[in-house]
Design a protein around this nucleic acid. Sequence first.
DNA 1: CTGAAAGCGCTTACAG
DNA 2: CTGAAAGCGCTTACAG
Lengths: 334, 334
Amino acid sequence: MATRTEVAKLAGVSVGTVSNVMNNKSFVKESTVEKVRRAMAELNYVPDYNAKSLASGKSNHIGIAVYEMTNPYHAEIIQGIEEYAAEHGYITTVFMLDNTRDKKLDEICKRRLDGLVNFMSNELPSDFIGILTRQNVSLVNFAPENSFIVMNDYTGAMEEYMRILRDLGHKNVAYLSTTDPTRFSVDTRGGTFLARRKEYGFSTDDDLIVYNYNYELKSEEIGYKNIKQLLARGKKFTALFATNDLSAFGAMRGLHEAGLSCPGDVSVIGCDGLSLGRYMVPSLSTISFDKRACGEMIAGALINHIENPSAAPYTVLPVKTSAVLNESVSAPKQ
Amino acid sequence: MATRTEVAKLAGVSVGTVSNVMNNKSFVKESTVEKVRRAMAELNYVPDYNAKSLASGKSNHIGIAVYEMTNPYHAEIIQGIEEYAAEHGYITTVFMLDNTRDKKLDEICKRRLDGLVNFMSNELPSDFIGILTRQNVSLVNFAPENSFIVMNDYTGAMEEYMRILRDLGHKNVAYLSTTDPTRFSVDTRGGTFLARRKEYGFSTDDDLIVYNYNYELKSEEIGYKNIKQLLARGKKFTALFATNDLSAFGAMRGLHEAGLSCPGDVSVIGCDGLSLGRYMVPSLSTISFDKRACGEMIAGALINHIENPSAAPYTVLPVKTSAVLNESVSAPKQ
DNA sequence: CTGAAAGCGCTTACAG
DNA sequence: CTGAAAGCGCTTACAG
């Protein structure tokens, strides 16, 4: 592999000049630029980003911490981040923290990331966050004080669905949550459900809410387990919200096995707007948002903060969501 | 952030010794090790992997090139790779080459990876592969000469399904492919279908095979489009193979819209063994393999090759697959 | 068993 | 506009 030095020698310039050409410094004479480019081409020169990172103190490397990578939900957001980042000269590493989490946190610190986007619902250890902060890593979705927060505001879409269900005549509306009660209530969907169910004329029986405490399970498994539990409780219900589309799929399977039809016996509403939901039978009603644009917005704010640390104060990044009504919702049977 | 030098000073040793402690060299005196460790702890020392990579000429960084990250299929294999790699001190970067591919190939080269695993079905540019080869990057799933090849041998499972369909009385079996005819025929499933369909008593009408040429589409979209095309051809069929589970979901939706039931009118067989398939109605028959173990095997062979370049010649990594029969297959209506 | 020193491939003031 | 030189944080023979 050709190195900087060889390129410099062949071009008849110094390594510093090669560097200036590489970084598109405008003050380099055009003829010099050409000489250097020719030499690079001839030698098949490929720069070494690790060396650049070390010398410049900037890695141009953004990390993304995710959980449950088998959920296609993240993939599109990540694509948005990646695309924007790539256009701005950053690479992206997805750290899947499903398993072997703690081993990987160390690795993250060692890589001297410029930024880190967090999609974990679990809390991350505070000493890990401390290291990142000292390293001056720009953060997205960590604690509010020192991080951008991506805020999917589901309140509007959630209320829209509650209105739709009420107008269709539903009274007993269940909620299958992939999380525990605490996380459920701080979530904008769970919170809205709890706060407004009475006002919309829905039952306030807490037995209609099923929680999950096992975060090892995949969402579809949780949905399936949840509906079984709900059915076992013997309460009447004609509609249900699920935390996400995958868990809604699991719930629909459970309904089918219990001899219940969707939406005839039970209307089902998911969340995330997975492409797959449109191909289910019945197609799944969900809450959608532009995940690609969301990823680009995240990357934009993050890179801006990396490059102008003082300019942009950490803040909330709002994401617009919308209700997408499909076949899985109808009026309840009389 | 504390650096090597500060640790050395505090511990009263040289930076070289700190390095030896970091790398667990056995010849360092125990008391020295302790002094150094204490100093590192006191200073919250976090090593810099970029610097290490530069100095050692080894990045401990494995890349994974994937296409269609919204397909959960890859996620589990990647988890297997990641887990094994993390245990052996490597980090993993997933390069999503769905979009902006060529920009990203450059970045891959600059990162001085130790290894690269390829899950792209599209061919990669030969000059890209040339650079990687010159960089001595260990490769998985590139051209056979200079790479490990992961070989999911679907032949057995495919023949099992052909036998099952024949025994159930199916004669007109379709195939919905997410790829073009060339890739279809080199694939072990497509190839087996073409080679053996006559022998199993199935129609050899090529109109029963639907290809796809638009690689921008998601698998579920392709399956949906394919089944529409097949139905439009007006040929009779009572069973179909789909390239993967997601495209099978799309096909099942298309059948439903055409007023056909699965498996009553048409039996459907996917491939990949997605967890989600068990929750479909009907649950999807598929071909499965242990994706986690597959990922671990890939990482094992790759890291072994990285660390002993001469020891392990490039070779084929065989993956056992098995037919998983579910509700989506039954006898054809008379 | 440890230290001093050269080197990995780059960047970046600084002189000129 | 360009070159010489110091430095980024590490590793690694080499002496002792």
